[in-house]
Each structure stands twice: as C-alpha cells, then as structure tokens.
Amino acid sequence: MRAVANDEKNEFDALAFFCLLPSLLYVLCMFVYPFLYGVYLSLQPQKIDGFSFANYLAFFSDPYQYGTIWITFSLAIPTTIVVLLLALWLAYGMRRGIFMERTVTTILIMPISLGVILLSEGILGFYGSQGWFNQVLIGLGIIKEPFILTHNYAGVMLALFMQQFPFCFLMLLGYISGIDPSLERSARMLGATPSIVFRRVMLPLIAPGLAIAFALVFVMSFAVFPSAIMLGQPAGTTRTISIAAYQKAFEQYDMSAASAIAVVMGLCQLAALLVIILFRRRLSPAATMGVGKR
C-alpha cells in the first residue's frame, strides 16, 4: 500500500531534470532514434522511391534468407532449454552456499569476462579434432574417431552454452538464494520431503525468475553472431539471421535491406518475450508477492 502512495508522490524538479537530461538524451538519440530510423529505412528500399515492403517481401521469398530464422531458432531454443535446466539444477543445489564458492563463481564467470572471441578461439583449439578433448577421449579408449565439435552446428551450440550458462546460473543463483530459507524449513517441518519442497514450494517461487531467465537467454542466443562465424559454417548450417543482416549491410552495402532483417530479428525476439510474459501471467499473480522481502 505504501509503495502505491510513494509512486504518486511527484518529486520531479529542476535538479532532477538536469541530472537525468544527459543520460535520457543519450538513450533517446543513440538507442530509440536509430531503432525508429531503422524501421523507417527498412520501408524505403534502395531501388524504389517511397514506402514499400519490398525488403520484407524479398526476405520472405528467398529461402536462403528466411531459412535463417529457422536456423537461428533451432540453435537458440535447444541451447536455452539446456542452459536453463542445468543452471536451475546447479543454482538450486548451491542455494545455501558451497565449498570455495567465490573461487568457483569466479571461474564460472570467466567465459563472460573473457568475451566470445577468445572463448571461440579456445574452443576451436580445445574441442577441435586435434584438440585435447578428443585426444583424451581417444586416449582413454572411450571413442575411436574424434567428435567433430567445430565448424558445425555443435560448435556453435557449445560456444553459446558456455557464454549463456554462467550468466543464467548467476541470475538464478541470486534469485533462488533470495528466497527466504525458512519457507523451505517450514515445509520440511510440515512433512514435505526435499523433492516435494522443490515441486510445491520452491519451484512456484522460482518460476517467475525462471521465465525471465528463459527470455533473456533466448533473446541473447537468438542474436548469436561471432561464434556462428568462427565455430560454425557461416555460409551453411549455422547462417544465422545476424549473419544475414551483417552481410546485407557490410558486404552488399544495402542498409535498407539490412535494417529490414534487423527488424525481423527484433520482432522474433519480441515474439519470444511476449510468449514468456503471457506465460508469466498465467502463473499465480500472487507468486511474486513477498518473495525476497526478507
């Protein structure tokens, strides 16, 4: 109740205006305006005067182009599901802290801070057919022929997984460890076994966080770009929609068509977000109440 009253209070004065102005101008000019300009440009094809959907029609009538949507989905969806399940499992297991937690989390975030380029270069070497991974597996007699994990679909999945997993794990860990531990204890005292505690108490409380994590990981995976080039077949099985947009813009210098593809990419991400938001609505509206208050 108090929060509502607070929102109605208006403390916007000259100081607030001048403090907010630089950042607001920046975001409006450099983020909102280019977006709108991109949409506008996409409707102004290079070879035609005036408004036209020619760029979109061209994109959706060329299998080489619209196929990228399917390719990108087929990379992003499995990655997101695997990342989410493993991160949930690990974060739930670590919710009360683990041995050497700080060191472990530091190593887990290494892929984030090293950046995707270095990560891809390392994966190329380590998981390559001559790399240590295959050498060890062959040496141990587990496999005869090396797993081909680079320059294909699997390579991009691997890179995406390593990029997104730490991110998703840390998000969920923060979310889960913010849930009042006495909820779990009281459920145990009421006769619930650990698996019932998870199903009936913790999972419903984690679900909103899980939905957000799903959306974020999916959206990020959907824009996969450098690892799809370095670890995949950028002209074939892993030609994602980002690559299509990039090629239009910087290889064919057709900014208008590139903008159209960027808009399609944005819409796909938006669609996924909407699905998640609708799904969250269906979860009990009270589910988010009181969580993490204490």
Binding site: F31, G38, L41, V219, S242, A249, A258, G266, Q269
Partner: peptide, 18 residues
C-alpha cells in the same frame, strides 16, 4: 532495454545511423 536487447539487434540500425 540496451542491456537485454542483443547488441546485434540494435547495433545494425545504430551503425546505419552513425
């Protein structure tokens, strides 16, 4: 938004503008 929307998505219109 700039933190959750992938940089590739807004990067192309931004690059076009710049």
């Amino acid at each position: 938004l700039p933190l959750v929307i992938p940089q590739m998505t807004y990067g192309i219109p931004l690059a076009t503008t710049l």
